[in-house]
Amino acid sequence: MSQSTTATTVEFQVAEETAPAAATGGEAAGGEAHGTTEGTEAHGGGHQAVFPPLDTKTYPSQLFWLLIFFAALYVLMSKVVLPRISAILAKRKATIDSDLARAQALKDETEAAVKAYEKALADARANATEIARTTREAVTRDVDAESHKLDEALAQKVTAAEAKIAASKAKALDAVEDIAADSAVEIVAALGGGKVTKAAVAKAIKG
């Protein structure tokens, strides 16, 4: 393999340097090119004279194909491959973003619902307190009014009773005076003091 390689290499150099027709004169031309007599005889000797990366004969070919293939690569990358990959990445980003946005929206909704629930609860509680308060006030007012009325009625009754007692007392005192007058008339009569009228006695008692 190496032998044939050497031959083609030499041929390459010759084709470049002298003439395309020199293909058959490989050995002689090769010796000429390398400036050594046993250059092509020893295996691999053909490329010892010119270090391949510094062999300027191969430069046009390398430059030409580099230009072609690198241009092809650039076009393929910029027109086909990179847009494809960036589309995949963009799609993924869009999906993730929209999912996150939806999650955020759902979270907001949940929070709003919780807030609404809490507000309703607080309202209900406040309402209940209000109702309790008004009820309590109404009841208190009723009780107060009732007890006031009762107090007044009782006071009236007490006053009436006191009046009645006073009347009874006066009546009783009158009766005592009457009895005392009667007794006095009789006592006077019994003592023989004459006749004394009851009216005079009563007048005397009252003094």
């Binding site: 390459f12 084709a15 470049e16 191969t58 070919s61 030409f64 194909w65 293939f69």
Partner: peptide, 10 residues
């Protein structure tokens, strides 16, 4: 005039 044959490098 330039040798641009298709090589192993190409």
């Amino acid at each position: 005039g330039y040798e641009i044959s298709f090589t192993n490098s190409a």
